[in-house]
Write a protein that binds this DNA or RNA. Structure first.
Lengths: 338, 338
DNA sequence: TTGTAAGCGTTATCAC
DNA sequence: GTGATAACGCTTACAA
């Protein structure tokens, strides 16, 4: 079954290929009758315009690369990424763009891979998720003038097209609310040091405490990988060695691990120890105890990021902007306010 | 910064475009000296061969579409998909293929979308995950002679290229082992009816019981969506109305919901009630109690599926085969044997 | 309103 | 060993 091309259709319809092309793009200056005839033939022959040929002449692929900035396995295991992708995929489909998943074992390879997709012209732009502190990729993209949108924040390049929530403020506000509720001894189960949001949230916590003449004992901060095991160990370190009545975990999965560790150590949550997470993954509202958390609208962030990128791609006068999405504290069982 | 093409390189290196092309493909009949010269120029000019142009002439895109057969949001939230994708992505990268994610709100749209990617020539083949019972997509693919590999099983089309585990056998063996361990009253928290594996596992359960002159009371089977809420409700229905000492959940997430529901109802797990899941998601080994489960090597399945597809794509004499991967029972805390 | 022809950036076939 | 040239399937001036 050979592919039918525009020429085949043209011959069959007894018109020129250009006419067929114009029918495809629904050009206004084609007579109704030829349009109908050509469309009928296209249908009959099962013709589909070749996307590759089209891309070649248009110099646009209508596809967008997705970079996770983290080994894909781990990345995908985290609901954060599922949420973002969900948002991205929805808009991509609606606007008729394809999504190219770039994946690699390690961060370095992955971003080289993503860059390559751009250089070989396979994608028109990139959406970057959860950037690390060391953002060479952004540097490269900027240098080559490649369109991209970052979900998160770059330390080196503060004003680039991006969508993010204000992690600093979210953490700051959370702590204020906790202090008002009477909590005194804070501890933090932070994410990986390499991520920008880790630093931002930490700063928010520290500054909020300072604003109330309190401080965060450095021994009560533990950085951890995004694995359950690592999180458990870190939670154990904090809980078995230090007095604390409120543990702030920078991700729900970490919070979940903390709850388990706390209960295993004999703490009753939330009575003796309040635990709060970040993100509001669907799962955590069903746990026992359900997790109090700072909700980050990740699906929404994905939608906005790709919408921005598409706008940049289609409107050359638009160069992107910074969108900051607000967060919300969801009170559940693992930590009670007031 | 305009893209540099093969012609630019040719001009600069004072050779013809064909020579440059031959250097790119490392053709044996090009002198070492020209190769070096051309390579140097390519480097210097920052030349990257255009993938689109290449695809057009080669009539191959070196990209593969991924179909989830399920709203992407939900799909991605399930670790099953993350695992499969992890395997697929690893091999794709290694073999230099790109992955195109097809997504849509509903199943029907999604498979139309996937088919379209093939028809417009944007991908060379498809990997299908978790097929439904109603598999029109497969029918279409077969009819159009499009290359694809299914992860799972099709009821209508038993012998197509696919990789799967033997769900029937896995369930059968599990029940046998449970019976040997003294369990008597079985109940099943099954997945969605539309999925082939649900039926297969159920049949395995029923047949194993029959083989021991036992039977499964239909009221002790509950079908449920893959959401925590739905699973909890179904588990509640079973546990609050019927006597059971072993609950088999057809997915770890469902098992996890069952454990919580059981404990909320006052059952002690595993003493009064054993609960076993399927898949062995990373998370569930860390729960309290940790989940006994039937491990399905999903990463491996992803790897094999895409490897098979690539082989089909590159070797026209190979038309795929059926690979059945074996499973393994992992004993943890939620259900004890003997 | 439609056709002709050039061109998008490659590779492949033939020459030399 | 290397260079012309055609072709891949489409779009788009420019003509008519």
């Amino acid at each position: 079954m050979k592919k039918v091309t525009i020429k085949d259709v043209a011959k069959e319809a007894e018109v020129s290929p250009s006419t067929v092309s114009r029918v495809i793009s629904d050009s206004p200056n084609i007579s109704k009758s030829t349009k109908e005839k050509v469309r009928f033939i296209m249908d009959e022959m099962g013709y589909y315009p070749n996307a590759i040929a089209r891309s070649l002449v248009k110099q646009k692929t209508r596809s967008i690369g997705l970079v996770m900035s983290r080994p894909t396995d781990r990345a995908l295991a985290n609901p954060f990424f599922s949420g973002v992708i969900q948002g991205i995929a929805a808009v991509a489909q609606e606007k008729n763009y394809s999504l190219l998943l770039t994946a690699a074992d390690n961060y370095e390879d992955e971003y080289q891979e993503a860059l390559k997709q751009l250089k070989v012209g396979r994608v028109d732009g990139l959406v970057l998720l959860a950037s690390r502190i060391n953002d060479d990729l952004i540097k490269q993209l900027l240098k080559n003038n490649f369109p991209f949108v970052l979900i998160g924040r770059s330390q080196e390049f503060p004003s680039i097209p991006r969508v993010d929530n204000d992690n600093y403020k979210a953490a700051f506000d959370l702590i204020e609310k906790l202090i008002k509720s009477g909590y005194k001894d804070f501890s933090v189960l932070a994410g990986h040091k390499d991520y920008v949001f880790t630093g931002d949230r930490l700063k928010g916590v520290i500054d909020a405490l300072k604003a109330h003449s309190m401080n965060l004992d450095p021994v009560k901060i533990e950085f951890t990988d995004f694995t359950f095991k690592s999180a458990e160990q870190s939670a154990y370190k904090i809980l078995s060695n230090h007095k604390t009545d409120a543990l702030i975990a920078f991700d729900d999965l970490l919070g979940m691990a903390a709850v388990q560790t706390a209960e295993a150590l004999g703490f009753s949550v939330p009575d003796q120890l309040g635990i709060v997470g970040f993100n509001d993954h669907t799962l955590v509202s069903y746990l026992k105890p359900s997790l109090t958390t700072v909700k980050i609208p990740i699906v929404d962030m994905g939608e906005r990021a790709i919408s921005m990128l598409i706008k940049m791609l289609e409107d050359s006068s638009y160069t992107g902007e910074e969108e900051i999405i607000s967060t919300e504290i969801i009170e559940r069982e693992s930590l009670k306010f007031i």
